[in-house]
Simulated assay, not measured.
Amino acid sequence: MSTLAGSNSQTRVVVRSAVSHQSDASLAVGELVAALGQEADLYAVFVAPGFDLAAVAAATRAAFGDRVIGCTSAGNIGANGYDLTGIGAIALTGGALSARTIALGPLDDPCAVVEENGAAIAELRAGIGDADGFAVLLTDGLRGNEDVLTASLMAALGDVPIIGASAGDDLTFRRTAVYYNGQFSENLATVTVVRTDAPFRLMRVQHHEATGTVLVATDVDPDRRIVRAINGRPAARAYAEAVGLPVGELTPTVFSRYPLLLNAGGTSWIRSIAEVEAHDFLRMFARVDVGDVLRLGRPQAMLEKLGACLEGVAAELGSIGGMLVFDCILRRLEFESEGLTGQVGALLAAHHATGFSSYGEQFNGMHMNQTLVAVAFA
């Protein structure tokens, strides 16, 4: 799925990217500055585990001022494909690009925080006017409420398309943080609305297809992302039967290979399983509501689907000059288990992708898992 925008073929956004593996925050940001300069219209910075976040934040603000967004990551994506360490960054310049960022938080009640910031969100929307633009949402990946936050934000922004991601911490699930105003903060999200005259395209790709196996969520705790019963039976037992395994053999590898798919708006959205809890409940990585009709998913043409989507975007734009990419950590784990990490990483690098491995993705008003979302520039 994609959205093409930007109609002036004479203007382009110049995209530059860089990575540093220096362990010292000041030296690392210094390398980014040397590669990217300090004159870009918008920077995005993604920090893999192992850094002093306060030091990274201070150096980042000193280098790039208030023209930077970012978050912690579960690994980065850049010129070398998947990169498990370091600080990755992307710089966007030209194409009459302008960007404004606001913070949303705390995130304990996403509906309320979006409503409280309604005036500021309306100003962001007004800044685009009748021109082309999009929004970038970066949010704490451990709050467990991105579903409500994304839907509320989409309602507030109206027709402005959204791509977004949940910050990560390399699967330790201890602390994820979003950069804003010179510091990395938990329980926070940022919304950046970007306006540009240059051609760009939003894209979303997944490689799981729905099978004919229907699993109806009949007892759930949606706010905690717990599915207690499927088809009127203990959820883990019903799922295990669907994949042909005993409950005791359900592992993260099984969950990543056979996620659940929800159909909405004429397309499917992945709802990944995190683990089996007590009483054979399933804890999910995305919200499931009572009565949701889910279908068992299965992988299909992992590399081919990504390649076809990227080639399609490149054909429409003429070529891809750079991409801001958010790619689910579960996808990388699945590629690792299939021995495809190098090939997928090389494919992303060949299309000038820069971004990070995330704990969930957002596209317009939906939160999902095991998906890649991106904005590509001509």
Rank of each mutant, 00 (worst) to 15 (best):
G118V: 14
A119C: 14
A119M: 14
A119K: 12
I121Y: 07
A122W: 03
E123P: 03
E123F: 00
L124M: 09
L124A: 13
R125W: 04
A126Y: 00
G127Q: 07
I128P: 00
I128G: 03
D130S: 15
A131C: 13
G133P: 14
F134W: 04
V136R: 06
L138Y: 10
T139I: 11
G141L: 00
G141R: 03
R143E: 10
R143G: 08
G144F: 01
G144P: 08
L149P: 00
T150F: 07
T150H: 05
S152A: 15
A155V: 08
A156P: 15
L157M: 04
G158M: 04
I162W: 02
I162L: 12
I163Q: 04
A165Y: 09
S166L: 08
S166E: 07
A167S: 12
G168C: 03
D169E: 10
D170H: 11
T172D: 13
F173I: 09
R174H: 15
T176K: 02
V178K: 13
V178W: 03
Y179S: 07
Y179T: 06
Y180N: 07
Y180D: 07
F184V: 01
S185A: 15
N187P: 11
L188M: 13
T190E: 13
T190C: 13
V194H: 05
A198P: 01
P199I: 12
F200H: 05
L202H: 01
L202M: 10
M203H: 07
